[in-house]
Simulated assay, not measured.
Amino acid sequence: MAKVEVYTKAYCPYCMRAKALLAQKEITFEEYRIDLQPELRAQMIERASGGYTVPQIFIDDLHIGGCDEMMMLEAQGRLDPLLSN
């Protein structure tokens, strides 16, 4: 199973949507709440090559982007192969 990491904030509809898709697929993930741990924001931006909005999603250290990018991978049938590594 792939290692999935998601940087999020509370009250973020995109974060909730991304987490709901992962939950629907029964994928466990590590959630980093940058609103509760602001020191993680700089780490997120560095790992995401400048991406500063949430969510920022990583699968096995591969940055796939945010919620829209993850939904696009899902629609194209490319998300499940990434998650099954």
Rank of each mutant, 00 (worst) to 15 (best):
A2I: 08
A2K: 14
A2N: 13
V4T: 13
V4E: 07
E5M: 08
V6A: 04
V6L: 06
V6N: 00
Y7P: 01
Y7D: 02
T8H: 05
T8R: 02
K9Q: 15
Y11G: 00
Y11L: 08
Y11C: 02
Y11N: 11
C12P: 13
C12W: 07
P13K: 07
Y14M: 04
Y14P: 05
Y14F: 15
Y14C: 06
Y14H: 11
R17T: 12
R17W: 09
R17A: 15
A18K: 10
A18R: 08
K19W: 09
K19V: 03
K19Y: 06
A20S: 15
A20E: 13
A20D: 11
L21W: 07
L21Y: 04
L21I: 07
L21A: 00
Q24P: 04
Q24C: 09
K25V: 02
K25T: 08
K25N: 04
K25F: 10
K25P: 03
E26K: 15
E26I: 05
E26D: 11
I27H: 00
I27F: 03
I27N: 03
T28C: 13
E30W: 01
E31C: 03
E31S: 04
Y32I: 14
R33N: 05
R33Q: 10
I34R: 01
I34P: 04
D35R: 05
D35S: 01
L36W: 10
Q37F: 08
P38T: 14
P38H: 12
E39D: 13
E39F: 04
E39Y: 05
E39P: 02
L40K: 12
R41L: 14
R41N: 10
R41K: 14
M44E: 06
I45M: 07
I45G: 04
I45L: 01
E46N: 12
E46S: 12
E46D: 08
R47M: 08
A48N: 08
A48D: 07
A48V: 03
S49P: 08
S49L: 13
G50M: 02
G50L: 01
G50P: 11
G51W: 03
G51A: 09
Y52F: 15
Y52V: 08
Y52P: 04
Y52G: 10
T53K: 11
T53W: 06
V54D: 05
V54A: 02
Q56P: 07
Q56I: 02
I57N: 00
I57E: 02
F58K: 03
I59F: 10
D61S: 15
L62C: 14
I64V: 04
I64K: 00
I64Y: 05
I64M: 00
G65V: 03
G65Q: 08
G65P: 06
G66Q: 04
C67E: 10
C67N: 13
C67H: 06
D68K: 10
D68I: 12
D68T: 09
D68F: 12
E69Q: 10
E69H: 08
M70Q: 07
M70D: 00
M71V: 06
M72F: 05
M72A: 14
L73H: 11
E74A: 11
A75F: 11
Q76Y: 11
Q76A: 14
G77V: 09
R78V: 02
L79K: 02
D80M: 12
D80K: 13
P81H: 12
P81S: 14
L82S: 13
S84Y: 09
N85Q: 14
N85W: 07
N85I: 13
